[in-house]
Every structure is written in C-alpha cells, then in structure tokens.
C-alpha cells in the first residue's frame, strides 16, 4: 500500500517541471515509500535538542577580492545553447497569451 498517491506524484512532477507518462506516474507512486520510511527512521533520533548541520565543515564569511576577470567568450557559451540569435539565448515564449 503506497502512502504517496498517484495524484501527489503528478503534483510533484508539475512542481519539478517534468512531464511524466501515465506509466511513469503509476510506477513512481509505488516507489516513493522509501522517503516515508526514511523520515520515520531519522525521527527516532532527530530530537529538538540536536542542532542541524548543513555543511560538513562550517566556514563562515568566505570572501575574496572583487577582481574583474575576462568573461567567457559569448560565442563559446552560445555554441552549446539549443537556439541563439543576435548574441543572445533564444528561448520559447515566456508568458501565455490570452
């Protein structure tokens, strides 16, 4: 019995901007219990008095001198783009029209 429904997977896929087929939605719904089990496991010891660690070796206020350097050549960067025009990335329409 899956704890994360097919509908929930569809909602997450929309949030993550991944088009999934019907078959993928069904299969993934059956595979996501691992996360619920993992949460149950870590909750056994993750009590309020334990501080969280976000990075293994804490470093704070990492600065470097603000030195201008040559940027990457525009042509080199655009060479890897799916589409380009006039020295810029060419992207699909951003806003839907009414």
């Amino acid at each position: 019995m899956s704890t994360i429904s097919r509908e929930e997977v569809a909602r997450l896929a929309a949030l993550a901007r991944i088009d999934l087929s019907e078959a993928e939605l069904t299969r993934l719904a059956g595979e996501l219990d691992v996360i619920v089990e993992s949460v149950a496991k870590v909750s056994e010891i993750a009590t309020a008095d334990v501080p969280a660690t976000s990075h293994p070796l804490p470093l704070t206020n990492v600065f470097r001198d603000d030195v201008p350097v040559e940027p990457l050549p525009v042509a080199d960067v655009l060479a890897g783009a799916p589409a380009a025009e006039d020295g810029r990335f060419l992207v699909p329409q951003i806003l839907e029209e009414d």
Binding site: I4, E8, V9, L12, A13, L15, A16, I18, L20, E24, L28, E31, L32, V34, I35, S38, V39, V42, S43, I45, A46, T47, V50, P51, A52, T53, S54, P56
Partner: peptide
C-alpha cells in the same frame, strides 16, 4: 534521475522541509 527529483521535491515541499531535510541534517550532527 526522475525518481530522485520527485523524492527531493516532496522532501522540500511546503510543510515538510523541517520534518524531512531538517531532521536529516540533525542526523549529520550526530
């Protein structure tokens, strides 16, 4: 990759962040 992105999106969803990612970070401390 799809599987792990969906798992991560779930773990970071509104309302779950502290219980999921936050708890796991506490385990790192331990």
């Amino acid at each position: 990759v799809k599987r792990r992105i969906i798992l991560g999106t779930y773990a970071l969803s509104a309302g779950y962040y502290d219980a999921y990612y936050g708890s796991a970070q506490k385990v790192r401390t331990l």
